[in-house]
Design a protein around this nucleic acid. Sequence first.
DNA 1: GACGCCGGGTTTTTT
DNA 2: ACCCGGCGTC
Length: 735
Amino acid sequence: MLADSILEGLNPEQRRAVETTEGPLLVLAGAGSGKTRVLTSRIAYLIGVCGIPAESILGVTFTNKAAGEMRERVEKTLGPSAGGLWLSTFHSMCVRILRRDIGALERSRGFVIYDDADSLGICKQVLKRHGLDPRQYEPKRLRWRIDEWKNQGLLPADAASQAADIDDELSAELYGTYQRLLFDANALDFGDLLLQTVELFKRAPQVLDWYQRRWQYVLVDEYQDTNRVQYQLVRMLAASHGNLCVVGDPDQSVYAWRGADIRNILDFEEDYPNAKVIKLERNYRSTQPILSGATAVVENNLGRKKKNMFTEREGGELIHFFEAENEREEASFVVGRILHASRNEGRSLGEFAILYRTNSQSRAFEEELLKYDLPYVVVGGVRFYERAEIKDILCYLRLLVNPDDAQALSRIVNKPARGIGKTTLERVEALAAEREISLRAALGAFAREGAARRTAGKIREFLDLLQDLDRFAERPVDEIIAEVLERSGYMKALVAEDNPDAEVRIDNLRELVASAEDFHAVNTGSEGEERSELELYLDQVALISDLDSYEHKPQSVSLMTAHSAKGLEYGVVFLVGMEEGVFPHANSSYDEERLEEERRLCYVGMTRAMEQLFLTCARERRRFGSHSYQSPSRFLREVPEELMQVQHSPGRGQRSSRTRASRRTREDRLDRSYSQETHDEEGGIQRGTRVRHSVFGLGTIEGVSGEGVNQKLKIKFDRAGIKTVMVRYANLELA
DNA sequence: GACGCCGGGTTTTTT
DNA sequence: ACCCGGCGTC
């Protein structure tokens, strides 16, 4: 009965992938082949049909979002019997393991997780301690090198023994110092979460044994994106029983730059000799021209495992191609098509996605969407938890959990300004290094011994503040944050700034408090946890990505990089910026392997489309503030001509007939309309002014930012709430 | 120690 | 064009 309902609607290959429960299994799942469905059905089958307890199953994905969706779908099929199932990302799985068992490595379970910025800060410290000039040996390069080693599963000693030249030897030594500083701060960086878990399993076999017994069935999603450490981790976990199911698509491997090793999936059959292989080649997503076009592109990669993808969605529109004069025209074309299709084809805005190679490309499209008041969501870019003000407050919180957190301490020691500046901090850091004590201890010591009376007083005040805050550590997180904002004087200092920029930051902090309230509300159920709410909160924010919080809004256009779009699908996709140097990216254009990765990324982008796919490029584009002229992407030439249909600029003649002169008039016209609009608003713009917006109605100006044509207004509308609009597009009237 | 100006790098993709 | 860090001035 249950078996039937789980297997119902699966094609023979999918069904086989679900029913082959024992032993190593590789599922090669092409784009749109129902991979997630297979994974969730398989889990449901293991629990509901084979009678495997949910807690014996481990499912690993790359994003929290994917894990959450999978859990949701399994629970829908099975109800409460899915409880105890472990579905998580590699990173959060490792955090949970380490929180429980890192004691076996003689480390404290109360470690904090360092993000990229913290790691970079440590790198700077390392260079300082080795007396190296950061201009000569760049902190970023060191950070990158260390990350690379960690992705390969190498500790400082391994790195040193493999060093090929003097430069590598030095770097390996710096890596050693880096690890010591992390250790002293009781911190682990992203790479450590994986690396130290492998290390734990190596050094404490009884711990590994415990997890091997616990998880009798291991599933890994997006296996083509695993790096060497993740590979080792999976191998260790599945070693005793071999019940390992990995799902992936070599054609969608786009994270080699982050250490992903495509060999992991290509060599699976060698690594696990009795492995079974199932290919899912039937595409349920895209129409024929889209699938054929995308496949034609990726077939230009050499050394690729051949797949024969097919779709039953015969017919369908050809792939549309549009070449714009510049990025403004490109954006205007895309948004024009969205307007047209949403009005005439009855599509909701949520069915459209604009995909690009780099985050910086979002801007032109955002401005154009703003112009027509079309709601949109940008995924990625500057992440919420990385904004300066948010990080500041999180650093205060981190210090409540881990007083040794040197990065957190040095970040907030003078935020808000409290008279403990750079010079003092440098002296304290030197003292900490010299006596091998924590930064916090060094602060105290400096106040007692080295500091001028004035400075000593300020340091004491600061240390008192931290101590004062400590008593809130066990309270709900939103309350702790509120206390920090209040008692540190952080909020007061921001309010005193009294400018639109500070107001945005205040809003962000309010949002932080609100999201912490949510966390508290959701989290109150899990009482039995021995870890405090604050600790759980910090773990979560450290591992959350922008993509995780991306909710598909049915009434908003989605904007994101092709990388972020992996695993998602949309009715209409615009893959924009198809120019040499942009896509493929200039940095990847001269290396065959990297170029192939760009090509796979193009394949990923194209296969996100279900019914309509638009490829666009611009002849001219502003980059780094100056003009650049690029030829159309080579990937465009790789799409068979008969699958493409050239679009022409709306309201204008054929491309060939367009002359410089006619373009000139157009630009003149645009220029005129801008200056006119700006002129209309002159003198009327300031806080408190009442204005009327054609869509949002009456509102009060709350803030002004930007200059000239880029001037933006933050307006509190009586009915529509607070919105930021660009003056030149908003069509405002004084009310 | 705070503030402001200047110069250089930046935009590759992110758990 | 923008952001950040470094350096000089107050």
